[in-house]
Design a protein around this nucleic acid. Structure first.
Lengths: 133, 133
DNA sequence: ATTACATTTGTAATGATTACAATTTTATTT
DNA sequence: AAATAAAATTGTAATCATTACAAATGTAAT
C-alpha cells in the first residue's frame, strides 16, 4: 500500500506536501524529527514551510497514520510504522531501536475497567551495543 | 523511610531545598510539573528559585529517587514512586492515573541481548471515566 | 467565472528548559 | 575561629521547539 492509498483510506486529501511527507515516512523508519523531515523534503519542494510539516504530522497522528513518539526529551519523533511495537533509546548516543518481539498488551487494563485505552507506548532506556562499557 | 533517609542513602547532600522537594514528592503522588512544585514550595521558601527545582529534579532522577515522565507533551512530570508501574493519560482532561497491576517486564529483551536496559516506561492514552462518551 | 473553502506559507509569539555568572551557603584547612 | 576552597542556590538571559495567526495560494463548487 503506497502513500496515496493510505491517505485516501484515512480521508486525508492528498496534497503534494502530504504525499511527500507520507512517502518519506514509508521509506524512512528512522523515527525522524520535524527538522529531519523538513531538511530532506525542502530541496525538492522549495516553497515548503516547516509549519506545514507540523500541521501534516499532527493531522497524520490524529488519523492514525503515524505514531507520535515522546521518547526523546528534546524533539518530537514520528513513526510511520503503526503496528504494535516498543522503542528503546540509548542514553549515550540517542539511537532509537524498534522492539518488535513483545506480546500485545491487554487492551482493557485489569483493575481499570473505567478507562478507555486508545494507545500504548512502551519506552525502554539504557545503553546500546556501541555505548555499553 | 523519610526524605532525609532517602537523600542520604543516595549520596545526595540534604540541603533545605532538596529536602523540601523530596518531602513534596513523597507526599504528592500527583506527577507534578516543575511549576507545580515551585508554586507549592515558594511561599515557605521565599528565596527559592525555579532553577533549583530543575537542578534538584535532574539530580534526583540521575540518582534514581524520582522518575521522569515524558507522558505529557507540554511539561516534564515527575513521580516520587519509583516502583514498577505504568501510567495512563486522558486525552481530554489530561489526568494522569497510575497503573499498578502489571507484570514486571523482562529486564533483558528477547531478541535484543545486545541492549542494556536500565528503565522501562509504559504510557497508555485514552479517555478516563469522566471523559468517555 | 466567481465564490467559498481548504491548505500552505511566513512571521511572530509562546513558553519550557538550559546556560551561566554572581551570590550565598557549607565544608575544609591553617 | 578566621581564611580558603568547594558546593549549592539564585536570577537573568539565551535557546529553541512548538504554536498562533493572518496573508497568500490552491482547489472545489456553484
Amino acid at each position: 500500500m503506497d502513500a496515496l492509498d493510505i491517505l485516501v483510506k484515512h480521508d486525508i486529501k492528498p496534497s503534494l506536501q502530504r504525499l511527500a511527507v507520507m512517502e518519506y515516512m514509508l521509506t524512512h523508519f528512522t523515527h525522524p524529527t520535524v527538522d529531519e523531515i523538513y531538511s530532506s523534503l525542502s530541496p525538492s519542494i522549495p516553497t515548503l514551510s516547516k509549519t506545514t510539516i507540523y500541521n501534516t504530522l499532527s493531522l497524520f497522528e490524529e488519523q492514525g497514520v503515524v505514531l507520535y513518539l515522546g521518547i526523546d526529551k528534546k524533539n518530537a519523533r514520528f513513526d510511520g510504522n503503526t503496528s504494535h511495537h516498543a522503542h528503546f533509546r540509548c542514553k549515550n548516543c540517542g539511537a532509537i531501536v524498534d522492539i518488535f518481539n513483545q506480546k500485545q498488551e491487554e487492551i482493557v487494563l485489569e483493575g481499570h475497567p473505567e478507562l478507555v485505552i486508545d494507545d500504548v507506548q512502551t519506552y525502554y532506556t539504557g545503553y546500546c551495543k556501541n555505548c555499553k562499557k
